[in-house]
Amino acid sequence: MKHSYLFGLIMMLSVTFVMTACDDDDGLTVTPKNELQNDVIKRTLGPNMVGLNIEFAYAMAIPKSLGKLVSAQVEASIGGAEGTYLDNKSYYTNGSGQDVGIEVGSASVTSGAKTTVTFTKDTIAATLRYFYRIPNAARGQEVTFKFSANASNGQTVTYSMGPYKIAQMDMVLDLDVKDSTAAYISIADMAVYGSADAAAKADKIDLVYLYRSIPNITFNHALVAPSNKEYLPGVKLPAGVNRSAKINKVWALRDQQLARLQFGVFIDDPDFQQLSITDAPDFAINMRAEAGAWVETADGKYRAYIYMNSINNTTKSAKISIKRYTLK
């Protein structure tokens, strides 16, 4: 009796061992798919701004035994602006870290929202870069992309990307401002005017740029609303230029799209929507390079961020870049 229990127990243990022992699937071994395959990554970071590119890398490959690549195409839900293209080169990185392109197809052809590259070389694997120039029609909307590749054996693969929100903001880079000659900044036009033009567009001038070197105080480079005469020493405003504005100085907010420096900081639509500078003054003096200022126009129509790319005390000038958001 006793022995039969023991025998049963041993049998059960043996069966358990047999069932678990040979399970050597480590989850690391991948069986390759014997078909045409593709994959996409988005290469650009930050807000998608009208006029800038969204860049993708589209990879496709087919086993040699099945055939070769015939064509690759991308269809955007909103047609890209002029300058949208699918690169006909496949890139590799050489020993010095440089991307070297090898032409594998004819230059891309865009018809409507669809951009196509037809392969001219005998190619079984390629990674093509797609540059989508964001059109004005897409402002504030969402864009999706459908990548697809065809092979000589008739197989087709597709890969969908998005949706991506296109920002409401506008951006202008590297405006040159100079004391007295190009000093009148219009947020509405996102432009800088001299005094003659400023008089003609008096209702659009929001800020005056000036440089002063005054003993005992630090004035230097300043952005002052025309309404504030105290901080416009020696400035003779053109007739009619008298608007006010809210200006809030900021330090070390180096938006990457404005500054193009190494800092991964981006100003996006929500930053403007949530901005609260109602108690801000109407002047900002002693603006330094890489500093900036939030601005809200007197009519409440625009909010903007003005970034000082560089300053020059000798020529009394500066280079500024602006991101602007139109309030509803």
Partner: peptide, 9 residues
């Protein structure tokens, strides 16, 4: 404080 300081904030 510096000339041009916004004393309100």
């Amino acid at each position: 404080v510096f000339y041009g300081t916004d004393l309100k904030s």
